[in-house]
Amino acid sequence: MTPMLEIEKLHAGYGKSLVLRGINLHVAQGEAIGLLGPNGHGKTTLLRCVSALHRPSRGDIRFEGTSLVTCSTRAVLQHGIVHVPQGSRLFPGLTVTDCLRLGAAANPRRGVARTLLSEVFDLFPKLAQRRTQLAGTLSGGERQMLSIGAGLMAGPRLLILDEPTLGLSPKVRHELAAAVQAMRSRIEALIIVDGDMDLVLGVTDRFFVIESGQVVRTGESAAGAGSDQIMALFLGET
């Protein structure tokens, strides 16, 4: 069986500086994977390549056998790959409801916005309370919930979460972790990057450690939990 997402010998960079140096990675149908590794080593760049916000210089990204490297960001989205970006401030001047509705704008299934909206509000009751508030007035945690909610409105098959708990308090982190667990059954596959290693290993099946733009280690998340070696790799103390 071909994997859902295959990334092969991917190279990418900014100008002259090469950030990704031959990433190989695959995600099977139904699988959740975690990306770990120190900051600034290319995790976000990799995800931006998948969603066609950034063009790789070499290598291939295939979704169910179809290459994505020449697709537009919208076309990637319409394949069902939804990328919730790191640290987004969203659309500060739009209301929570407008942000969420906009998330469904490219959903190939027409007329599902209303149902999805109530599902997102069930998942994140705080957003329901603030539905008429401007996104720019939300707290960091609420903003992250809104980002994820807008992603869910697009009807993801493969959901990509980049640092969903960055800068959040432990309490809000737990809320988000619970939400990720809750939506796990509704999406076919998940890629999550996060600084909270326990969270990542807790919600995923496999993990990849990325360092200097390469996969330096991969394994089963259940086996990785609590491992000092992973922790050391994760913190970049090799």
């Binding site: 916000l53 537009s72 919208r74 970006p85 401030r89 659309f91 906009l102 704008a105 490219a106 992603g151």
Partner: peptide, 23 residues
């Protein structure tokens, strides 16, 4: 209108607007 809201979204956050499918 949805079109107008997507104009404002693109103004306010280009990358995120593209990620939710605004052309």
């Amino acid at each position: 209108t949805p079109l107008g809201i997507s104009v404002r979204a693109l103004e306010q956050n280009r990358d995120h607007a593209r990620l939710i499918g605004i052309r």
